[in-house]
Design a protein around this nucleic acid. Structure first.
Lengths: 99, 99
DNA sequence: GTCAAATATTTATATATTTGCATCTGTTTT
DNA sequence: AAAACAGATGCAAATATATAAATATTTGAC
């Protein structure tokens, strides 16, 4: 394995994480989870006013790419930020995109 | 126009910015531009080893979504970060994606 | 004006994403 | 065990994106 390939892999991991976040509804989800909050799929689907299956799909993408974690408790599954640092990205964007 | 629509527009602007950055080659471009550096299309296309037209296309996307600015000087067009803050996003990602 | 260099745009093809519906799986309640 | 609830998954249609090859545009040198 080449150094360059390692580098490309790292870039791809980073790109996948960004790609996971790069969607209006998924940014909205992240905003609701800032500060360590934990929400269920149903809560998010009601907060955003989008379909349950669509919500679940978005959450799955965010989890798959390492942005969110989930924890099942009885009938509910709670989702939360894997690194609270990541909400800095959303903040940084808000600042940069308002000009 | 509804408050909600404004909110959705803001989310979309942010998502577009992130989407622009969410590509391995485009992240590589951002890394090369950190610290206020300015590079031409040819320099970037040689640094990354990708086609000229592909490079120009990627730069166009980053510029269109407000991530980069460009300035023509003679035959060359220099590209640079619009907000140096944005390179924090790349750094933050590097940290979060290394675990 | 003509030529060459640096960028940009167009086009075509391949591939990936988004969304909602219907369905399926797991968990609690009765 | 059946019903009810929460969430996940498979699928299909619409849409968006990526790439490269070919072509067009812009600019400076002559």
């Amino acid at each position: 394995m080449e150094i360059q390939e390692l580098e490309i892999e790292r870039l791809e991991t980073a790109a996948n994480m960004l790609k996971a976040m790069a969607h209006p509804m998924r940014i909205a989800i992240l905003k609701h989870l800032e500060g360590g909050k934990k929400l269920t799929v149903t809560e998010i689907h009601e907060l955003l006013g989008i379909e349950q299956s669509t919500t679940s799909h978005h959450l799955g993408i965010l989890k798959d790419k390492g942005v969110l974690c989930s924890k099942r408790e009885g009938k509910n599954t709670y989702y939360f930020l894997r690194h609270d640092t990541l909400s800095q990205i959303v903040d940084c964007l808000s600042r940069c995109s308002c000009e």
